[in-house]
Design a protein around this nucleic acid. Structure first.
Lengths: 232, 232
DNA sequence: TGGAATGAGATTGTATACAATTGAGAAGGA
DNA sequence: TCCTTCTCAATTGTATACAATCTCATTCCA
C-alpha cells in the first residue's frame, strides 16, 4: 500500500463493496447519529441506506462482531455505541497496545515499510512547518498506522486501527499550532528508535508520546471534545 | 448468566442461531482442519455444513471481522488462521490485557458477580481436591471469564474471550495433577484481591499467575502442545 | 378487574433466483 | 511461440420470496 493511500485513509484490507454500508453504519453509531439502545430494524436500514436486506444483514453482523451492536436471535439488532467510560477505557487499552506495537515494529519492520515510515515522517516535517492542522490529522493517523502494520501482528493492528477510528469520530484529538512542533519532536524520537531497530527505545518514546498527548488533550477545554453521547 | 452456564462454556452474548455455523467454521480454522491460505468457496461451505448461502455468507463476514479470514471483493474468502508466531504474540497481548482486566474487575465488580466468582472459586477448590483435570479446564476458563465480565469493559471482555477460544483450540494448557494445587493457590490470591477490591494486588496476583502458567506450559514437552499448523 | 389464551401484523431467519464479476482456456493473429 | 482477445463456466453480489418467530393488542373467562 502506498503512502498516498495511507494519507487518504484507505484501510489495507481489501474490503468488499458492501462495506461502504458497514462503514456508514459504523460512523453513524460512533458519531451518535444512531443512538445507543435504539433498534436497527433491517427494513428501516434498507430504506435509509438504499440497499436490500442481504447486504444490510451482513453489515450488521460485522458490527456485531465488533461489539457496536448486540444481536438477539429473532429479535433484532440493538445499538450499543460507546459511553464516556468506554472511551476513557479505550485510551488505557490503546496506550498499552501502541507501546507494544512500537516495540514489535522496531524488531520486525521490513525495509519497504521503513521507507514508507520515512516518507510519512518527511511529510510530517513539511506540514508541521506549514502548520496545516487538517493535513497533520491524516498524517498523524498514517504514521501510527504504518507502525501498527510494521508490528506484523494482525490482531494488534486490527484492534489499533479500530481504536483509531473510534477515537477519530468519538473523541478527536485537539491540535493547536504550538502542539504540532511538540508532536513532531515526539514522533522524531519514535521514528529514530524504529530506524535504529531499538525496541526498548521505541516503546519508551511511544509511551512518552502518548503520555504527552493525553496531557495535551486533557488541557483542552471540554467543548472542543466530541459531543456527549448517552450510554444505556 | 449462571455459573452453570459458564461451566458449560456458553458465551454471554445471545448469539443468533446461525452462529453455530460461525462457531463450527471458527473451530475448524483454529484446529487447522481448514488450512491457512485455502479458499472458502460459499457453495462448498453450504454443502459441508448443510446451510444455504445467506447464513454462510453471514458467518464468513463475522470471521472476516475477527480476522480469521480475508475477504477479497468478487473473489471470495481466504482462510488466514493462526501461525506459531501469532500464538506467541497472543500470549503477550493476552497477559497485558488480563492484568488490566484483573485490575478493573477489582474496582468494578458487582455484588452478584462477586457471588458468582465465589461460587466458581468453591467449585475450583472441590475439583482440585478431586484432581479432575477435564473439569478443571472448564472451571479455569469460567474463573477467568467472570473476571473479564467484571472488568465491565466490553471490548476487553470480547478480546479476552476470543483469545481464550483461540488458545483452547490452538494451544491448550497442559495440566498435571501436581500443577492443580499451584494453580489453585494462584487463583486464591486473585480471588482474595478482588474480594477485597484491591486493584493493585489483583493485577499483581494475575501477573504472577500468568507468569507461572507460562513456565508450566514451556516446561511441558512439545508433543503435548497442539499440532503444528502451517502459516502462509 | 386481572390475567391467560389467541390471532394478526411486523420482523427476523433461510432459501433461491437473478445480475455482475472473475478466471481459465480456446481461438486467432503476428 | 508468444501475446491478445474472446467466450463461457464458476463464483460472488444483490434482490426477493417464503418460513419461523416475536410483539402486542384483543378477546375471553374466572
Amino acid at each position: 500500500m502506498s503512502v498516498q493511500q495511507y494519507l487518504e485513509g484507505k484501510k489495507n484490507n481489501n474490503q468488499p463493496l458492501s462495506d461502504n454500508l458497514y462503514a456508514k453504519l459504523q460512523e453513524d453509531i460512533l458519531t451518535g447519529r444512531l443512538k445507543s439502545g435504539s433498534k436497527l430494524t433491517e427494513n428501516h436500514v434498507c430504506e435509509k441506506y438504499k440497499a436490500s436486506r442481504t447486504p444490510v444483514r451482513e453489515a450488521i453482523r460485522q458490527l456485531e462482531a465488533e461489539g457496536l451492536v448486540q444481536l438477539i436471535p429473532n429479535r433484532g439488532a440493538f445499538i450499543i455505541g460507546l459511553s464516556e467510560r468506554d472511551i476513557s477505557d479505550i485510551y488505557v487499552m490503546r496506550n498499552g497496545m501502541e507501546i507494544q506495537a512500537a516495540s514489535w515494529a522496531a524488531e520486525r519492520i521490513t525495509d519497504p515499510e521503513l521507507d514508507q515510515l520515512t516518507e510519512i515522517y518527511e511529510y510530517m516535517v513539511f506540514y508541521t512547518h506549514k502548520a496545516d492542522i487538517e493535513k497533520m490529522r491524516s498524517i498523524n493517523a498514517a504514521f501510527h498506522q504504518i507502525i501498527y502494520q510494521s508490528s506484523h501482528n494482525r490482531i494488534l493492528q486490527r484492534q489499533l486501527n479500530m481504536f483509531q477510528t473510534y477515537l477519530k469520530f468519538a473523541a478527536p484529538d485537539r491540535y493547536t499550532p504550538e502542539s504540532l512542533n511538540e508532536i513532531l519532536a515526539e514522533h522524531q524520537s519514535i521514528y529514530h528508535a524504529i530506524l535504529t531497530r531499538d525496541p526498548a527505545s521505541s516503546a519508551l518514546a511511544m509511551r512518552d508520546h502518548l503520555q504527552r498527548g493525553a496531557e495535551r488533550n486533557s488541557a483542552a477545554p471540554a467543548e472542543a471534545r466530541a459531543p456527549e453521547k448517552e450510554a444505556i
